[in-house]
Design a protein around this nucleic acid. Sequence first.
DNA 1: ATGGTCGAATATCGA
Length: 278
Amino acid sequence: MRFVTWNINSLRLRLALLLQVIDKLNPDVVCLQEIKCPTEAAPVEALVAGGFPHVLVEGMKGYNGVAILSRYPMTRIAGPNWCGRDDARHICARISVGGSDITVDNLYVPAGGDVPDPQANEKFAHKLQFLDEGVRYLSATSSSERRLLAGDLNIAPLETDVWSHRQLLDVVSHTPVEVAALARWQATRGWVDTTRQVLGSTDKLYSWWSYRAKDWDTSDRGRRLDHVWASPALAPAVTGAGILREARGWTGPSDHVPVWTDIAFDAPAPKASRRRTA
DNA sequence: ATGGTCGAATATCGA
């Protein structure tokens, strides 16, 4: 089972690139963030035609918005109203894979604005509150549940998750207060960062490069903002992980690239639904 | 220290 998370930065604009990602990675489940359209405007039929008969969308006009695409049947699970707002940052589904269930949380954490001070910057306060609610959310789960949490968490926790630890200490996404809050969240039930579990912590890994760089590839001033976490019950089943860096170099790219994690399931995947031609 | 570029919606705001 391959899970992909991608901040697509407009689903309608980048539908063709999404199909390219699907072609390249052949995922079973795709979590999208920043789809930037109302729920009813999401191109669901094109996604079904692209091999994902099961689509859940939580959208809104202009900003945010999340969606889950699945080759397997899934049912939506209601989540909390994060920070008392209805701003389409979370969608949850239980996916059934041949008698085995897995719950997937798709999250888009607030970016937090420019000033890393909750007193001076309401957006940063919102981000910190969202992270605290993340702790409360995972506290209500059991450590025996098979669960995955994926999304744009807008925090690069490790020194190797940013191009310069020293230069980003005061930059929202890598400040000690955010990194500590993310660590508390992840540790709540002993969740595991699957990307680092598979690839180790030594190498620099990024999933986002600013649009403002003259040459994103050469300057390579990236950050790893997109994550796939596994519950402690699921973490031993993780068999692979990766980041599709090349997608940043495609024509008309998102500023984020897809991040994927492979999970071993006891039940074999139904062959007929693996390919879009089926 | 500053400005650089995107997307949505159409002047700015959010990232």
